[in-house]
Amino acid sequence: MDATDQKRLLREMLFARRFEERCAEAYHERQIGGFLHLYPGEEACAIGVLEKARTGYDYVVTGYRDHIHALKSGMDPKALMAELFGKEAGCSKGRGGSMHLFDPDVHFMGGYALVGGPFPLAAGFAKAIQLRGGQEISICFLGDGANNQGTFHETMNMASLWKLPVLFICENNLYGIGTAIERSTVEINQYKRVAPYGIEAAQCDGQDIDIVMSHAEKAVNYVREQRKPYFLELMTYRLRGHSMSDSGAYRSKEEVEEWAQRDPIGIYKRRLVEAGVVTEEEFHAMDKSIQDEIENEVVRYAMECPEPRVEDVARYVYTEGGNNHG
């Protein structure tokens, strides 16, 4: 990877961080409502994996902590922020919200609030790809908590049985909402849980984007060439609460601090500074330009664009012409 791409990746991770922090501010200012699940600490996962996929071509699906997967898939940050502000110009026309981002134009298939719900959807995209004889793959990002749902086991079985091209990415952040993995799950190494289904799997550090990309490249190639599922577990940590209403009582400050030392942006920045790819001054300038862009372009756009018309509340329940046929 050349220096230009390395700097771009660093910028993408920093953009993701600043975007989420700005969302938190807007939430406190009540410009964003509902539930808000933010991604700081986990940026190397979505950005590292999708760097090695063909975004806009491969299908991507995830749970409710979905902002950064959408961005890296190619969604316009203005459409994303407008959605969070509930605006008509939002990626889901203000009908979805933070947990329900969609951009089928770039094959970002959503944002879902039911834990484990996207497993079969991802397999379904792969089923359609298989029927069409396409070369796309389906990529499903979910947390460790989703693996205790029946859909995990049912989907692994069918995806393997029917040789569906799905890459399952497990973002293992050690907690299912506020319950530690060892208190909810017998086998804490998630990648071992797909072995009975005959699915190839690996586990790696999810904080170091170079490690993530190296594993993701193998995984993506495997699924694309072998046309069967693969499971990659990324060990990561969310530095903020599960959502904006999180007591934090389930984990210690020391633990959070320890993981903050392994912040994916810090790790990558130090590496690029040491290699002479970027200087401290350049990093600060990058940060400033990101924050300016988010404030002056993204947030301003979201604030200024109009809300949906109330008279359109029943629009989109059915498709236009859903009763037509022939």
Binding site: P120, A123, G124, A128, L131, M158
Partner: peptide, 26 residues
Amino acid sequence: EHRVVDTPISENSYTGIGVGAAMVGA
């Protein structure tokens, strides 16, 4: 077998696989 699919007894997930396939044009 690809178009007339015998499923395991997993109603929720094979329904979801159908839903996913429908979302991308099948």
